[in-house]
Structure formats: structure tokens, C-alpha cells
Amino acid sequence: MPAPDEPPAVPLPEGATPLDATAYLAAEGYLDELLVELGGTREVRAVYGRLVLADGPPRPAAWAANVWLDPWTLPVASINAAARALRSVQRNWALHSVACHRRAALVAQKLPSVSARPLAFPAPAPRAPLGSFSLLDEHTLLASARCSSPFPHGEARFVEDRQGPPSRAYLKLWEALTRCGRHPQPGQRVVDLGASPGGWSWVSAGLGASVLAVDKAPLDPAVAALPGVEQRIESAFALDPAELGPVDWMTCDVICYPSRLLSLVQRWLESGNCSHFVCTVKFQAETDHDVARALASLPGAQLAHLHHNKHELTWLRLGN
């Protein structure tokens, strides 16, 4: 998710060299997608495993799990020197190791511990600054005090509910809502498209919203019985948003080609009836970068690969 528009400047340790670049940590398994998004290997300065260093300020990068916004390098004579340099900047750091793994782990051991406890939804995302660092070689530290994600390496983890939801898909919506800092509220109206078996409807109903769950397949009976849940057995694509009247949230985890989701989203936007959107863009064998760019270009849109996404992206658009 995007970093704040004007974050406060963070002082560098003595002797550090700012890189005038941005480092993008590819989502696990999606380095190729990130490189395409950044313009190919000719557009990047270096690639360290999943970490891609590209010249210039941060640019939109949906396939990046985390973005190191102000990377710098520093020659360090020892493990202690590396740890002292990091502590001189701020308290919290997460190691993403790309080289000299044992030595990097020893540096991390000399830093204050960062809580790895999973988040209990709907608790807010951590607010304390969290930087990222690595060793490029035995005596070169690469670090950025500011990163786009409040979670180590962009990996949002939650206290899972293994009883209520009918599938683990609910974690995607938990993560999307946590990252954007907005939730369906009691009394708000949610239309959940492609709802079956009901994981996303379960989330919204649990937050107190009124949910219209639309799918050709039925909901899990336990979800269908939740207060405020209405089930409509029909295609998500046949539903006319104009007939529904005002809707606060449209959520969609439907299985379809990305181009079809784009058309669906455009139709809902044109109706003007919905304020907030959270949709999963599901790719088939190949990643449709053209449709991803089209979705990202829609006014007010955010596009991101969440930790709980697979070969998918999450498209969000939040109103006032």
C-alpha cells in the first residue's frame, strides 16, 4: 500500500551513501511480474534475489510486497558496527537477507526485537516505524528506515479463526481492510459478489454490516444464517448495480478472467451507487499486465499483491 505523501525525513548514519533509488521486494514467487511492472531488467540497477533496486523515486509496483523508500549503503567494519549504525537511526528493523546470511542474522540479533505476534482483526496495523536491512557483502550494509508496509517484508499475519469462516479466503479481506485502515461499519450495506462459500460475507457480517451475498452457488449454511446476511442465487455479472440503490461497499472474490472483472468494476463505477470497493484480480496461467495496468489507472484505485494473495492482485478504491 502507498506510503504517506510527505513522510518525515529520517537521518542517515554517519558515512552512509543515499542511493537515489528505490528497492522493491517482490512478492514471493512473483519476481518476473515485478520486473515487467518496473519496465524490465534494463530499467533496474541491481537484483538481489527478490529485492530489486531501481533508479529514482518510488513508482507504483503492485507486485512488490514491500518497498524500501529511501535505501542507503554503509561500509561496516564489523557486526557490532552494523548494529550500532541501524540503532542510531531508529529502533525497529526487519532483516531481509540476500547475502552473508549468518553474518546478517548476527546483526539482527544485536537489534531490539520486533514483535512477531499475529494481529487480532480488526485491530489496526502497527504504527511504529519499521525499516528493512540486508548485507550486500561482509562489509556493506543496505538499509532503508522507511518502507511502504508496516509489516516485516509486507507479510501481514493474523490470529486465524478456524471455526467461523468456511474457507481461508477471509484472510485476504482482513488484510485488505487492515492495510487501507477502513472497515464496513454497523448499518452499512455491503454487496458481496461471487460470495460462495461465504468467507468475505462472514467478515462483513461480523463487522455489523448488512450483506447481500450474490453467487450462483449457495452460501455455507452457517454464513447464510448470520444476522444481516441476505443470499441471492444469481450470477454476479447479471446483477444490475443501478437496481440496488446506494451501497457502501462492493466486495468481490469471484473467479473470472481479469478482463471480465475490469468490465464489472467499470459498470459499478459508472452506476455511481457504491463508495468503497475491494476486489480480487485472479490471473490464469499468464499474468495479464494490460488489464492490471487498466485497473490501476482507474481514478482513486490502488492495486497490490497482498500476503494472502496467490497468483492474484487486490484492487481497492475507497470513497470519502
Score class of each variant (00 low, 15 high):
Pro4Gln: 01
Ala9Asp: 13
Val10Cys: 04
Pro13Gly: 01
Glu14Asn: 00
Glu14Arg: 11
Leu19His: 01
Leu25His: 00
Ala27Val: 09
Glu28Val: 05
Gly29Tyr: 03
Tyr30Val: 00
Leu31Asn: 02
Leu35Asp: 06
Gly39Tyr: 02
Gly40Pro: 15
Gly40Phe: 09
Ala46Lys: 08
Ala54Val: 11
Pro58Ile: 05
Pro58Gln: 10
Arg59Lys: 11
Ala62Met: 03
Ala82Lys: 02
Ala85Met: 07
Ala85Ser: 12
Val98Trp: 02
Arg103Lys: 15
Leu106Glu: 11
Ser113Phe: 12
Pro118Ser: 11
Leu119Lys: 08
Phe121Lys: 11
Pro122Arg: 08
Ala125Trp: 11
Pro126Leu: 11
Pro126Tyr: 12
Pro126Gly: 15
Ser134Lys: 01
Ser134Arg: 02
Asp137Phe: 10
Glu138Pro: 00
His139Arg: 15
His139Val: 14
Leu141His: 05
Leu142Pro: 09
Ala143Lys: 05
Ala145Pro: 15
Arg146Leu: 13
Ser148Pro: 14
Val159Leu: 06
Val159Ala: 04
Asp161Gln: 09
Ala169Trp: 11
Tyr170Cys: 02
Lys172Phe: 07
Leu177Asn: 01
Arg182Ala: 11
Pro184Val: 13
Arg189Trp: 07
Val203Ile: 11
Ser210Asn: 12
Lys216Phe: 12
Pro218Val: 10
Leu219Pro: 15
Ala222Leu: 15
Gly228Leu: 10
Val229Tyr: 14
Val229Asp: 12
Asp240Thr: 10
Pro241Cys: 12
Leu244Glu: 04
Val247Arg: 05
Asp248Phe: 06
Met250Cys: 10
Val254Thr: 10
Val265Asn: 00
Ser271Tyr: 05
Ser271Val: 04
Gly272Leu: 07
Arg293Cys: 04
Ala296Asp: 00
Ala296Ile: 04
Gly300Asp: 10
Ala304Leu: 11
Leu306Asp: 08
Lys310Thr: 02
Thr314His: 10
Thr314Ala: 13
Leu316Ala: 12
Arg317Leu: 05
Gly319Lys: 06
Asn320Lys: 14
